[in-house]
Design a protein around this nucleic acid. Sequence first.
DNA 1: AATCGGATTAACT
DNA 2: GTTAATCCGATTC
Length: 209
Amino acid sequence: MKLVLPPGWTPLPREFYRRHPTQVAPELLNRILVRADGRAGRIVEVEAYAGSEDPAAHSFRGKTARNATMFGEPGHLYVYFTYGMHWGSNAVCGEVGEGTGVLLRAMEPLRGLDVMRPLRPAARRDRDLANGPGKLSQAMGITGEFDGADLVTADRGIAIVSDGTPPPGVPVVGPRIGITRAVELPWRWHVPGHVHVSGPRRPKRGGSS
DNA sequence: AATCGGATTAACT
DNA sequence: GTTAATCCGATTC
C-alpha cells in the first residue's frame, strides 16, 4: 500500500537522521508518524540510545540478529520485541555501523483513531492510546514485520513527516525510563506540558522538569 | 541445553 | 506501590 501524504506533510530527509541521537531526538518532537492507511500521530516523547557509548542501548555489545537494523542506514525503523508481548519503535540515527537510534515513547493520535481504538482495548481514553512505547507501537500496528522499514522513502507505508510545526524551542529533558543502566543520562525529551506523554509527568518537589 | 531478565503494560492493593 | 503476564535474544553452563 502506497503512502499518500496530506498536503503540506513532507518526509524528514535522510540527512536529518545522520547525526548523534541526542541531537536528533529533541528535533523529532512535534513530527508526525504516519501510516498508509491514514493512521497518524504527533510524536511528543522520545529517548536517545547511543550505541557503543551507551550501556543501556541494545547495540552496546555489538551487532546481533536482533539489533542488526540499528547498525544499518539511518532513517530506518528499528523494531524490537520485549517483555514477551511488547514492540518498541525506533528511528535509526548516525552513520552506518554506529548502532544509534531514538525510541519513540509517546504520540498524540491525530488521524485514524477509529483504527487504533480496537487495537488498544485497555485504553479508556484516547489519551491512553499511545502514551508509552509499547502502546504507540500497538496503536500504529507496528510489529516485527516493520523492522527495517525506510521512514524516508516509506517503502513499507510508514514514514516520519513534518507538517510544518517546529519542535518545541525548549523541550523538557530528563532521565530515561525503564532501563537499569546509564539511567543518569538525561536523554529523554518531551513536549512541555503535553498530556500525551508516558510515565510520571509531575515534577518532583523542587525539581526542574 | 538451560537460564536470565528486559528500552512494558495493565490490573491489582 | 506491587506484581503477573509472556517471549525470545543473549548469556551461561
